Amino acid sequence: MADNFVIEHCNKENCKKIVSGINKYNLSKVPPMSDTWTPLEYVVKGKNNEEIAGILAGIGYWNGLEIKILWVKEEYRNNKIGTRLLTHVEKMAIDKGATIAMLDTFDFQAKDFYIKNGYSIIGEIPNFPKKHKRFYFSKRLTHSND
């Protein structure tokens, strides 16, 4: 049996099949709270319509806000743009039923930023990349009057 298969590069249809397969399995174990991925993707524009920041995030089956990327152009950092963007997405997620947020970052990226914004480190990988650390964060999301 172990010799009766080949490993090949994925095409788009293969990727869809893989995602569908894991989703089917996962949902057979834990019922969904939402039917689909709800993207929460925003861009911040400055003068002359210049893109100066953005966030790529979304809410998954179990009402978790997954933050994939939050970026602020270097010369605009430390001006609360990232905090306002993060707060905006958290509020949108709460309004859509999200109860937790999760993300990862590196020690040379935004570790302290997320701590300042109420996120807790739930795990880390030391020496990845070499001489650095990767951190995993989460934060309980609640309405401001909860």
Rank of each mutant, 00 (worst) to 15 (best):
K116I: 00
I55N: 02
E90T: 02
A93C: 05
R84V: 06
F5Y: 15
G97F: 08
D112V: 15
F5W: 13
C15G: 09
Y114T: 00
T38L: 15
T38F: 14
I59Q: 02
G54A: 09
T38E: 11
T99A: 04
K29F: 11
N117S: 02
K68Y: 11
L86I: 10
W37I: 08
N63K: 09
R84S: 11
K45A: 08
W62Q: 00
I7E: 09
W37Q: 07
K91M: 10
K116C: 01
A101W: 05
V6G: 07
V30D: 00
Y119V: 00
K91H: 08
A110N: 07
V19S: 13
L86W: 09
I7W: 10
N48R: 12
I69Y: 09
D104S: 11
N79F: 15
A98V: 04
H9T: 10
N11A: 12
K17P: 04
L56W: 08
C10H: 14
R84P: 04
M92C: 10
G54F: 14
A101G: 14
I55W: 11
I59D: 01
K45T: 15
R77S: 01
W71Q: 12
F108E: 15
N49W: 10
W62E: 00
Y119E: 00
V72E: 03
S20P: 06
S34V: 12
E74M: 00
V19K: 15
W62T: 00
D107V: 10
G82E: 01
A57K: 13
N63D: 01
V44E: 02
V44T: 02
L103H: 07
L86M: 12
G58W: 10
K80P: 02
G64E: 12
Y42E: 12
P31C: 02
N4V: 04
V30I: 10
N117P: 00
D112A: 09
S28W: 04
D35T: 12
A93S: 07
E41T: 15
H9L: 11
I100S: 06
N79A: 12
K68H: 13
I67H: 06
I22T: 14
E51G: 05
A53C: 07
P32C: 03
N49Q: 12
P32A: 03
N11C: 13
V6R: 12
I94D: 00
S20Q: 09
N11V: 11
K96S: 03
G46A: 09
I55C: 06
L40Y: 06
L56N: 09
